[in-house]
Amino acid sequence: MKLRTLIICTSALFGGCATVHQSYAPDGRVSYNLNCSGLARGWDKCFQAAGDICKEAGFDVLDRSDEPSSTVGGSYSGNRGGMFGAQTSERSMAVACKRPAP
């Protein structure tokens, strides 16, 4: 049971896909809020998700943010004590698919 819990937690922490939420851009186009935060996610995951959504039409980046987040890890017991872990980033991007040329 402990191994199963560890695998689930590790998968959630290091998951490689961007999460996507649909919204609307100020100009009325459908937009997509992409989140590619975490240790194993980077801007490439957001750009890949935007390309998968908009395909050959392409997309416009409406907003983009990258903020450092907390350290992921935990303490360990031993003679020295202390913390271990890695710095994560909160990355998000809003995109809208380009409109077809007239």
Rank of each mutant, 00 (worst) to 15 (best):
M1Q: 11
M1D: 12
K2M: 12
L3A: 15
T5L: 14
T5P: 00
L6C: 02
I7S: 07
I8P: 00
T10G: 09
S11R: 00
A12M: 14
L13A: 06
G15R: 05
C17T: 11
A18E: 04
T19S: 14
V20R: 12
H21Y: 09
Q22P: 03
Q22G: 01
D27T: 01
R29W: 04
Y32H: 14
N33G: 04
N35T: 11
N35C: 02
C36Q: 05
S37K: 01
G38S: 06
G38R: 05
L39R: 08
A40G: 03
G42K: 08
G42E: 10
W43Q: 08
W43F: 13
D44L: 10
C46L: 06
C46N: 09
A50L: 07
A50C: 07
D52N: 15
C54I: 00
E56P: 04
E56S: 15
E56T: 12
A57T: 06
G58Y: 02
D60I: 03
D60A: 01
V61I: 15
L62T: 01
L62I: 14
R64H: 13
D66F: 09
D66L: 05
E67P: 00
S70D: 10
G73Y: 13
G74H: 11
Y76L: 04
Y76H: 13
S77G: 10
R80G: 05
G81W: 08
F84G: 13
T88P: 00
E90F: 10
S92E: 08
C97N: 08
K98P: 05
R99C: 01
R99V: 10
P100N: 08
